[in-house]
Design a protein around this nucleic acid. Sequence first.
DNA 1: ACCCTAGCGAGGTCTAGCCCAGTTGGAAGG
DNA 2: CCTTCCAACTGGGCTAGACCTCGCTAGGGT
Lengths: 244, 244
Amino acid sequence: MAENGIPAAQRGRKHLLVREYVRSLIVDAEPGSPAPSERDLVEQFGVARMTVRHALDGLVAQGLLERIPGRGTFVTKPLIDMQMRLSSFSEEMERRGKVPESKTLLARRETAGPGLARALETEVGSPIVHWERLRLADSQPIAIQHVYLSLDTFPRFLDDALPSSLYYLFADRDLMPTWGEDSVVAAVATEEEAESLELEPGAPVLHISRRSFCREVAVEVTRSIYRADRYTLWVPVLRPEHLR
Amino acid sequence: MAENGIPAAQRGRKHLLVREYVRSLIVDAEPGSPAPSERDLVEQFGVARMTVRHALDGLVAQGLLERIPGRGTFVTKPLIDMQMRLSSFSEEMERRGKVPESKTLLARRETAGPGLARALETEVGSPIVHWERLRLADSQPIAIQHVYLSLDTFPRFLDDALPSSLYYLFADRDLMPTWGEDSVVAAVATEEEAESLELEPGAPVLHISRRSFCREVAVEVTRSIYRADRYTLWVPVLRPEHLR
DNA sequence: ACCCTAGCGAGGTCTAGCCCAGTTGGAAGG
DNA sequence: CCTTCCAACTGGGCTAGACCTCGCTAGGGT
């Protein structure tokens, strides 16, 4: 079972290479412009067409691409514009004109359970950093944020001083996330969460789980619990072309 | 190659046969119960495994099935994982393979307060339609939806029969929304909401407020209250080039 | 009684083709 | 000049295998 030096995320996953290549093409392409044809990608990457189709399937499912039989594959209008972008808590708060602050509640080594291993694309039992912080804006508690990183990706994380911003760390290691996916759900605060957030237990909170990727590599998983009375998520949306 | 027993109308769509067969199996299966294995389906239907996988991909994307490597494919809990985009409740539910339904709780003329007036870009005291519906998927209550329209924009709304879909009405009047903005916040169900949604009062709910625009015109304001246990939001995010 | 391992079956990925149905643009013919 | 038609694309669907890793379990050895 010894890793032979090749990162687990890279072994036998050609479709991710293709997908991230195409994603990089369409991030700042104009809506409606054509993506490379499937057969062109087959030639470029020297893979089977099924592999290319699988790669594009993911982008179509995310609403970034649209297939039109007989014509080609085209860049859709982006679903997300300015506000709902991949940015850090600090960036978000600064944009809202507030002073961000954070207090570390916990920073320790753990081992990956099945869920985390899958999300971070590592193996069950592999070493993980769990960093829990209370996040404040203008000295008022806003959220509890759990960050999970693979220690294989950030080996010296717990040896060095904790970074002031996670995103500086990503930039240093050339792993700045380029895209991600958020899951949003409502919940009520547990007793522990209520205490940290200065809420009554049972008060509503917003759970936002995020997986961030740099190219095709899963970089971080965060689970944030926001006070519903101090945080509203704002998402601009566009109507997908094919529904008009 | 020319296996026949099936009408020519459906030729070349074997994956749909497999998909609908599996869907029929899992409609009233308990969450967590296993679906047939891919290789079993290959034998049952006499198709290639890629075809079976394609069939199951659709059900996985709709959130009906969950794949677990090494174990099998299983029926998920009925949680609706909805992608944030400007589309109607019905469209989203159909995309998820569920049967949408709605019950009108209220439909009357009101006058705009300051908040609504600003949101709909009319004047305070101007006539407004307030339409409240209970929204269901596969006969299970999912959300309460309050729709507010300006009676200046839709003068005959309350005189005609209520439309089966609001978006048909928009299409008729050439006011199909092209973009919008959503505000998302967590809350707990009021007694009244809990009753309609078949929840305990105090259970977590997701409030989604939407303003939809057709070009520069504010067309509708909706305020929806979703059951948190049956509804999550999925938001893909991209990091803009200039922040990298 | 314990642990370890081999094997089996699950899904994950990939190949190198095949034919089909739409779309399109240019060449041939009126 | 215009129309018609076809060839060269596009994606959609499908085949019949291959090899990989993961999760579980039944046996076997200690």
